[in-house]
């Protein structure tokens, strides 16, 4: 670890690792600097230009693109800065469809934070608005919605797709005020190479990319994805007796906080109405519901007649370590055979 750099932000002395941007140094030390297009997991690009700060001895600078330096003196607020930020913000929201009450991002939205800080002049914006410019809501994906009328063209989704998921499913399209994010050939997202990993959805700072039918969980539990051998760490949210959400555990050792479509959106099977909820016993050729007592005593009695090598167990790689231990112990110690395998070979 190299030495920390010491600098002054708004008259407070802060320390940061070399290479940290002035923006991150401020945010990490609890000093809010308005920002939109910067994300801690991604490279900085400095396109929204609302994170401007004054550094003594320099012209106003985009703080996300400026690395900290020893002895730097930074001011994050001034009248000049406010003015410039306001103009920059207005350019971003010219055609923004402000309907916070009906927006899934309401209260978590970074544009709201910005607007609160900088303020906008609604009349001026309305005067500049192009009433004909609106995009269709893309509802093609079963797990998330794309509403480009709320996009602030920060490019976080484009960089996420490239830098986190490693693909380039989406990109900027058109120019100037018509700039938007689109999939190749301006098709619907479902017809693209998008794998629905949802990484861009969790990073979009506004309500342009939002999960469908999102329900806020009342509590979350740290556990492991039930699908593949990557074993990503997930935070599963529940409300009442239902699973309602899932997100990556930040900085998890195997997955680093990322997930794929299955771990993020695929847990619906748990609350499927088709789940087995009671033992079933075959009577007169039909499987009928039974109590645990009845089922356990029938199985115990029957298995008692087939001890030894006429018995076999197929265990499951979907079950836990503890489940598998008990199952093989039962097969070997109670049923007296090593006839046990699971689908590892498949």
């Amino acid at each position: 670890m190299s030495e920390l750099v010491t600098l002054t932000i708004d008259n407070r002395e802060v320390k940061a690792a070399p290479g940290t941007s002035v923006l991150r140094a401020a945010l990490d030390n609890g000093i809010y600097v308005p920002h939109l297009c910067d994300h801690k997991d991604l490279t900085s690009v400095g396109v929204c230009r609302v994170c401007l700060v004054e550094i003594e001895g320099r012209r106003p600078t985009v703080s996300c693109m400026t690395p900290v330096e020893e002895g730097m003196v930074v001011h994050t607020a001034s009248e000049d800065l406010d003015k410039t930020r306001k103009i920059n913000l207005e350019l971003l929201v010219l055609n923004h469809d402000y309907d916070c009450q009906n927006c899934a991002q309401n209260s978590k939205c970074q544009l709201q934070d910005l607007t609160r800080y900088i303020g906008i002049d609604e009349e001026r914006i309305n005067a500049m608005r192009d009433p004909d410019l609106s995009w269709d809501l893309d509802q093609s994906n079963p797990y998330y919605l794309r509403d480009m009328n709320r996009c602030v063209r920060c490019g976080i989704c484009v960089r996420t797709c490239e830098e986190v998921q490693g693909d380039e499913c989406i990109d900027f399209a058109f120019r100037g005020i018509e700039t938007t994010i689109s999939v190749l050939g301006d098709k619907e997202i479902l017809d693209s190479t998008c794998t629905t990993c949802g990484e861009c959805v969790v990073r979009c700072p506004v309500g342009a990319l939002v999960p469908r039918n999102a329900i806020e969980p009342t509590y979350e539990v740290e556990t492991v994805c039930p699908f593949c051998g990557c074993g990503c760490g997930i935070l599963v949210g529940a409300r009442g007796d239902k699973i309602v959400s899932s997100r990556g555990i930040p900085d998890y050792p195997s997955s680093g906080g990322s997930l794929c479509v299955k771990g993020r959106y695929g847990l619906g099977f748990v609350n499927s109405p088709e789940r087995l909820t009671t033992p079933l016993i075959r009577k007169d050729g039909e499987l009928v519901e039974a109590s645990w007592e009845e089922a356990l005593s029938l199985v115990a009695e029957k298995l008692g007649q087939y001890k030894g090598d006429q018995f076999a167990t197929i265990a499951s790689a979907k079950c836990t370590v503890e489940d598998n231990y008990v199952i093989q112990k039962f097969t070997r110690a109670v049923m007296g055979t090593n006839n046990i395998d699971h689908c590892a070979r498949l």
């Binding site: 593949c228 093989q328 090593n338 046990i340 699971h342 590892a344």
Partner: peptide, 22 residues
């Protein structure tokens, strides 16, 4: 070797196999 299901490794480790214990 990339193991398929979530706990293939654990099932093998636990001896859910015909020739080994845990």
């Amino acid at each position: 070797p990339l193991r398929g299901q979530n706990n293939v490794q654990g099932s093998c480790d636990m001896g859910s196999l015909p020739n080994v214990y845990t």
